[in-house]
Design a binder for these strands. Sequence first.
RNA 1: GCCGGGAUGGCGGAAUCGGUAGACGCAGCGGACUCAAAAUCCGCCGCCGCAAGGCGUGAGGGUUCGAGUCCCUCUCCCGGCACCA
Length: 869
Amino acid sequence: MQEKYIPAEIERAAREHWRATAADRAVEAGGKPKYYCLSMFPYPSGRLHMGHVRNYVIGDVLARYHRMLGKNVLQPMGWDAFGMPAENAALANKTPPARWTRQNIDYMKQQLLSLGLSIDWRRELATCAPEYYRWEQWLFTRLFAKGLVYKKLGTVNWDPVDQTVLANEQVIDGRGWRSGALIERREIPMYYMKITAYAEELLTGLDALSEWPEEVRRMQRNWIGKSVGVRLAFPYEQDGREEKLWVFTTRADTLMGVTFVAVAAAHPLAARAAKDNPELAAFIAECKKGGVAEADLATMEKKGMPTGLFVRHPLTGEGIPVWVGNYVLMGYGDGAVMAVPAHDERDFAFARKYGLPIQQVIGAAGETFSLDGWQEWYGDKSRAVCVHSGKYDGLAHAEAVEAVAADLAKLGLGERKVQWRLRDWGISRQRYWGCPIPIIHCEKCGDVPVPDEDLPVVLPENVVITGAGSPLSKMPGFFETTCPKCGFPARRETDTLDTFVESSWYFLRYACPDNDHAMLDERVDYWCKNGVDQYIGGIEHAILHLLYARFFTRLLRDAGLTTLSEPFKSLLTQGMVVAPTFYRLDANGKKHWLNPAEVEIKTDERGRPAGATLKADGQPVIVGGIEKMSKSKNNGIDPQSLIGQYGADTVRLFMMFASPPDQSLEWSDAGVEGAYRFLRRVWKLVHAHVGRGVTAAASSNAGLTEKQKDLRRKLHQTIHKARDDYGRRQQFNTAIAAVMELLNAHDKTDLSDAAGGALAQELFEAAALMLFPIVPHIGQALYAALKPGADAARAAFPQADPDALAQDEIELMLQVGGKLRGSFKAPANADRIAIEAAALATEAARKFMDGKPARKIIVAPGRLVNIVV
RNA sequence: GCCGGGAUGGCGGAAUCGGUAGACGCAGCGGACUCAAAAUCCGCCGCCGCAAGGCGUGAGGGUUCGAGUCCCUCUCCCGGCACCA
């Protein structure tokens, strides 16, 4: 063993050893329980960022730990290779997206290899490969046949200058990011996946996901948003016929308080009213301005205009004015809402703004109602009943909803209905770098799916990206084709699929990436039985990706390809790696984001940040918020230079030590040095120990001094804690801290005799193995030095010895009147009476009880005694 | 705006089921070693106070023998909001 810790050398040697012994290879084999450990695959953006490093190190720690528990571990890796950044890079660098993407994959793979991840690289896949996406196209044609994929109009962001559809991210303050043009909402035909058909199952399935974080389940529950309410109609006359304006409400008990209804700008009633009302037509046109992002729609100023039309109240027959509201969305429900200003905050604000009547219909005895400002409509929910509501007066919420629904049903003007917030998944993208949609449009036969024998529809890779329009729609060689049904000339679909489609099933394909005659095979049944055992990824995917993957797994099940319903048995949502953002504004007020590495942060005399300058020119830059490291904010910090400087183990150790996996991690360079120092210290300690000669590890307390017994107890407590932290808690920073404490205790204990040497051997062997999942390279080297010929990668995780843990006497805290006043020792097996007596006998008890009698003595076993006076 | 989460020393964090607040590390301070520096090792390190002691987990209230932890109200920060991935 070398005296000096040289990471570059030992890391190269460890990786060579793992390669030579095929340590990371996952083979379907009986005997051991399988453990499929999966980290969310990366988008090949160019270089690894800290979020990737964190994600893959967490995954690797778990994979290695579970292998040490004797499991058959699969940890694969691949590339979420389609997506918008490749097209943006193509524009900027004049490189075809395919080449850019493949270069990035090559580079990032080298980076991942340098981290020493225990990945079975034979299973590597990239979603942009036709061998991958052909199965997606194949499945698409089957779903299309079943009606689970269908076509309807969808709303997109339209840039009128670039004549192109923009992603929400490309719309900044209502303008196109390149053109600066005001964005309009435009309706275009798109394909949709019928995720709503699975809404109920996706909702109830959450209950069984006991190994998912509660907040993720809560977010998905709210996103799916099941609400039981009433769909009801406001009748009106049109061209002599009776028509119905439908709305949905969860508050049918407030129906008697409706003072207006609001319809979406795109609602047929609005269009009809606008025909001979130019002012209204102008308002409707204005409503179309801006992007489609819900956050923008929800925060914009609520505006409206009367249509001049009236509908009839379904129960009273009273005339109710119809307004157009910019906050009503055509795509949600029926595109119309009833408004009860007295009992809905938004309706209240709207009514106040436009002078519409406010009619109270809910109240509680003894409470008065004022219109000074918005207020909750009742103080105590249990006392809230209908008022000013005729026959419904006095009914509570649930009874009133029932009664109103029943009366509406009798009139044929309403029914109880389950409403979902979840909307069907629009999967068409007017973009180039994605999986082509396997549909051929024939004038005679309509939308015809591409037959199996013509799959895959290969995406042409030699393209010029201009930023305007869809490249595929300018490539006759791609879209000119013949109809598979009738043989006449036809046009191939030029939209591509949402990249979320690829990431909705990749975890299954890792089981059989080489299968060229089927999407999935029996190896999926082995690796994915009961789902992926452990999935690790960013909390930002809590809803969309995870919900789509849950949906897709059920689609594949119902297509007979698997028997699996839930894809991910246990989920670990890692917190964001966040960093400060910096930018400058150009003449147009556009933000130019600057990387933290290019910026120097100025601090005040107290060490607090106070402004920043650009290193290149020394001029100030604007300090933005602390946000998720991302390409768009250019606030990523490159892990590669740290790996080069300190080695992968130091980077891994620092990332795992800095905060628990599920918390967000604010990046700071300080502390990396400390991780390096710790590894050097461990190396030095083991080197010194090994230099004293070969020793067999202790296996009992025999021959140990009291101090040595204490150290051995500490060792086995640490093992116990490490298992709990790696296994149950999945919190690695405390496992590392425990090993640090153990080494601190080691330094304070005299181990110079023979029994002490054996204890040191036991301690270092265990420490090397306990650290191995986090810092595998040095762990491999240390373990081999301690036990020549031994292989840490195939070793079992240490087990705590119950004899070593035994303790005769324990320390209890003493409180008097709830305040900590001291401590005392008691035998570990002392009963309550003995403990109370010992507590009362202490000096501190006498002093702080001040002669008063104990009113009550509370004993928290093993922890403390509280004497109440 | 809506949904979800967070806030603990100068900093990252620990306290796992309501029971010793600040483990472990970083930074800092003092010392040893050194011609000197780096590295390393030893010690100190929440705030106020000479001390006894008091105060202290974003703010305000509550429950409890006892609250960082539970309840109510509020502030700020972060993530998501369906075309970033």
